[in-house]
Design a protein around this nucleic acid. Structure first.
Length: 347
RNA sequence: GGUGGGGUUCCCGAGUGGUCAAAGGGAACAGACUGUAAAUCUGUCGGCGGACGCCUUCGGAGGUUCAAAUCCUCCCCCCACCA
């Protein structure tokens, strides 16, 4: 799922998203609440209409902002009081209000309010945080009435402590959500911990409901966790990194702003079918990024998102053909490095 | 022709006897980025060597001094105003 925090996948028009076959995009409750404000979105008839995206949308609850804006908020039992990073005004987010907000926004899949705890954190901290998040999940579920049109997911927390993860998952499953998110990962913990966690949850979470790993990840992460039964991902990396001249390809990461592409007139990936690769050279894209030109960001974003969506499409096909492990094992070492064609040539 | 002001490391620009390989900015180069306070941030940026250091550099050539980007002499070049 491409990330479109404030109601736009940065640098992309809805038509460009359709061109690369994006099926669903993300929005963020906290950011949309602050700007443009829920009144505007309500007046527009919901987020789909407001941004003219008639395909599915998933909204995050603001739980991630509990971590990313940790200097500007206070957690209490009832919820989180944020101080706006825009104008300093105070805003109380409770699990009930967060559901009401998301009812107004109207996303197809919505999230319980949670605390995304930082890493490292003590077991005591994670336990306390988890109790709160579970309480909030229950309160959110009780509040949510529009269940026919909006699927509310519960969010599994528990840090890197597997027993706490288990505890979290089981209690959420008792509440019977239509899907389960895995939160609080890729926040700085070792990769092995992340992998152990999804591998473990793979044995617990129901197989007939979607599992969404929040905020992950690199192409390698995605393939790894698909292998552990995860169905859905979102991540800012393909978009954010693309804008800064670092893109993902089937041959690994390519830092297109690098001097080595100054006079390289090949496409980013000669085999790629995206608009960018069919029409523009590495040298030109590098130039655009260096010039800080809008088109540069658009073209790199198109490519990286196209690649991500193609990658998960291939993963889906490999699963259907019962050859996923082979597929992933072949691809992961390639995707895990920086493209260096000169080096390959020497070898 | 006259008067005044200047020439500093890729560029702009500070520095007016030692603590200067020389502030600051830009460019350039190398990276980081994982439910987006991100068109952001970090590092490098004369050469050689782990560090301590050594060598080359502040328009050019001389000179003064223990010590010069900084002071003196001559020369070259630029800018402004006047004629």
């Amino acid at each position: 799922m491409p990330v479109g925090t404030v109601g736009t996948v940065k640098a992309m028009s809805p038509r460009e998203l359709e061109d690369i076959h994006a099926q669903i995009i993300l929005g963020n409750t906290y950011h949309l609440y602050l700007r443009p404000g829920l009144e505007v979105i309500a007046e527009a008839g919901g987020l789909h209409n407001f941004i003219n995206w008639q395909h599915p949308i998933l909204t995050d609850s603001g739980g991630f902002q509990v971590m990313s804006l940790s200097g500007l908020r206070k957690i209490i039992k009832d919820g989180v009081r944020f101080q706006s990073h825009i104008d300093g005004s105070y805003h109380m987010f409770t699990p009930e209000k967060v559901i009401e907000h998301q009812n107004i926004i109207g996303a197809d899949i919505i999230m319980s309010f949670d605390e995304c705890p930082p890493y490292p954190a003590t077991r005591e901290y994670i336990e306390r945080s988890l109790r709160l998040t579970l309480d909030w999940a229950r309160r959110g579920k009780d509040t949510h009435k529009n269940t026919e049109k909006q699927a509310l997911f519960g969010i599994v927390q528990g840090g890197v402590f597997l027993d706490l993860r288990e505890n979290s998952a089981i209690q959420l499953m008792e509440m019977d959500f239509p899907g389960y998110s895995i939160g609080g990962l890729a926040v700085g913990e070792p990769k092995e911990d992340m992998i152990k966690t999804t591998a473990f949850l793979n044995t617990i979470l129901p197989k007939n409901k979607p599992r969404y790993m929040m905020g992950v990840g690199t192409p390698v992460d995605i393939l790894t966790h698909i292998g552990n039964g995860v169905d859905m991902f979102d991540c800012v990396m393909p978009t954010r990194n693309a804008r800064k001249g670092s893109i993902f390809t089937r041959n690994g990461k390519m830092i297109i702003k690098s001097a080595r592409y100054k006079s390289d007139f090949r496409p980013i990936d000669p085999e790629c079918t995206c608009y960018t690769c069919r029409n523009f050279s590495r040298a030109y894209i590098r130039h655009l990024i260096h010039m800080n030109e809008i088109l540069g960001m658009r073209l790199t974003t198109i490519h990286s998102l196209h690649f991500y969506l193609e990658l998960v499409g291939m993963a889906r096909q490999a699963i259907l053909e019962d050859r996923y492990e082979q597929f992933a094992n072949h691809l992961i070492p390639i995707l895990d490095c920086i493209v260096d064609e000169n080096k390959i040539r020497i070898e």
